Computed example of a mutant assay.
Amino acid sequence: MSKISNLLEIIMIIQYKGLTTASELAQTLGVDKKTVYRYISSLNKANIPVYTKKGRYGGFYIDKNFYMKPANLTEEELSALLMASEVLTKQNGFIYEKELKNAVYKIKGVSINSDMNLNEMDDTGSFSIDFIGNTGNLEDKISQVSYSMSRGRSLNINYFSINKNNLTMRKVDPYNLIFKQGDWYVIGYCHMKDDVESFKLNRIKSLKVSNDIYMRPHTFSLKDYLNDHWELFMGDKIKVVIKFSRNMSHFIEDIKWNSNQHIDELEDGHILLSLYVDDIEDIKEWVMGFGKSAEIIEPEGLRKNIKLELEELYKKY
């Protein structure tokens, strides 16, 4: 990640969390503490009012009169940016494709509007799936999460699960609040899963600070967690290969379904569409909509899933 990206993340993290230590920033950004102090120095030279509070419960804080306001883009403006990031590619002669996509993700992350109801197609350039992510007030959520961590109180959250397409109530002991790839995440112990999980703030429908006390384990390391689960914050982690029949080949080739898709033409006129998705459930219904004209080649788990559903349909008819 570039220095400018890290500086922007530092501003946003300090602004929202109120007080942040050098160790927390170092773990979140994946740098050492000396680098964090150099970043703070650079911000001060740029007249960004970041100050240091010394002592056991000290850290960095930002002047309350300074505020980096969200872009407050309209749905149409944000959609235009997302579309531009898909059209302007290296293949089309635009050499700053990666930088543009990173910038758009960051703008998207701070342009959440409670009245907007964007879908996953806007987010990834792929499939149309209703997304509950933009409900609620981002600043209120961050404030409540920060408060619960400072007081050692568990959170009760109403969380939207894309792969199950429903809301579930979770009790979470929050360990860290981080900003990655344009999104805010709560990392903490999930009592339902009996494991440390990450939760996107824009998928939390509602949350409430409980009276239940917890203690963050001294064995937990944010740096180790991020190293082991980095793909959760990067996406594009599950490869899906779909075989389409000849009668569908032109239709599939003429449309940009996903930003990382690849198409192979077979000798018999069939084609193979390869792409990477965050969750195979996101693509299941889309593929089944093509009927016999589409066949999942991989992953095997998705093939079996569709097979079971077809068997249930066969029993009904």
Results as ranks from 00 to 15, higher is better:
Ser206Glu: 12
Gly93Lys: 02
Phe233Cys: 08
Leu29Tyr: 08
Asn72Ala: 10
Leu138Asn: 01
Tyr61Ser: 09
Asn137Gly: 05
Tyr96Ile: 04
Phe244Glu: 14
Ser259Trp: 10
Gly291Ala: 08
Ser274Gln: 15
Ser23Cys: 00
Leu207Thr: 03
Ile13His: 04
Lys223Arg: 14
Asn113Ala: 01
Thr21Ile: 01
Tyr16Met: 14
Leu73Gln: 03
Leu82Trp: 05
Asp63Pro: 00
Val87Met: 11
His250Ala: 15
Met248Lys: 09
Leu266Ile: 04
Leu78Glu: 03
Met215Gly: 00
Ile242Glu: 08
Ser148Glu: 07
Arg56Asp: 11
Leu207Phe: 02
Phe290Gly: 04
Asp212Pro: 00
Ser274Phe: 11
Leu43Arg: 07
Asp140Gln: 06
Trp286Cys: 08
Arg153Ala: 01
Tyr67Lys: 15
Ser259Val: 13
Lys64Ile: 10
Thr52His: 11
Leu100Glu: 13
Ser85Leu: 06
Leu73Gly: 03
Pro217Gln: 09
Asp32Cys: 12
Leu232Asn: 08
Tyr276Met: 12
Glu97Ser: 02
Pro217Phe: 10
Leu272Gln: 09
Lys45Ala: 11
Met149Ser: 04
Phe179His: 14
Ala84Cys: 06
Asn158Pro: 00
Asp236Phe: 13
Phe160Cys: 02
Gln15Ser: 14
Tyr96Leu: 12
Phe179Met: 12
Met192Ile: 15
Leu201Trp: 01
Tyr159Ser: 02
Tyr37Glu: 09
Gly269Gln: 05
Gly289Trp: 03
Lys106Thr: 13
Met215Leu: 10
Ala46Arg: 13
Lys33His: 03
Asp63Gln: 06
Glu312Val: 07
Glu197Phe: 09
Leu81Tyr: 10
Leu207His: 03
Leu308Gln: 15
Glu295Trp: 01
Ile62Ser: 04
Gln181Gly: 14
Ile187Cys: 07
Glu99Leu: 02
Lys108His: 04
Leu118Ser: 04
Asp268Thr: 08
His262Pro: 00
Glu300Pro: 00
Ile280Ala: 00
Asp122Ile: 04
Asp194Cys: 07
Phe60Tyr: 15
Leu29Asn: 09
Leu78Gln: 03
Asn72Lys: 15
Val196Asn: 05
Lys208Glu: 12
Leu222Met: 10
Tyr51Leu: 10
Gly152Asp: 15
Asn247Gln: 09
Ser79Val: 07
Ser206Tyr: 13
Gln91Met: 09
Asp268Met: 04
Ala22Val: 13
Gly109Leu: 05
Met248Phe: 03
Thr219Gly: 00
Lys17Asn: 10
Ile157Lys: 01
Arg246Pro: 06
Ser23Leu: 00
Asp212Phe: 06
Asn166Lys: 08
Tyr225Glu: 14
Leu78Pro: 01
Lys256Met: 10
Asn156Met: 01
Asn65Met: 12
Asp279Arg: 13
Ile107Ser: 03
Ser154Glu: 13
Lys164Trp: 14
Thr35Ala: 06
Gly235Thr: 10
Leu207Trp: 05
Ala46Phe: 14
Lys106His: 13
Met68Arg: 08
Pro49Thr: 15
Glu295Gln: 05
Phe290Trp: 15
Asp228Ala: 11
Tyr105Lys: 15
Tyr214Glu: 02
Ser221Ala: 14
Lys34Gln: 05
Ser198Pro: 07
Glu77Pro: 07
Gly182Gln: 06
Leu118Gly: 05
Thr135Glu: 09
Lys164Val: 06
Val186Ala: 05
Lys69Gln: 10
Arg153Phe: 09
Asn156Pro: 00
Phe233His: 12
Phe94Trp: 01
Thr21Phe: 03
Asn166Gly: 06
Val87Pro: 06
Asp122Pro: 01
Leu232Lys: 11
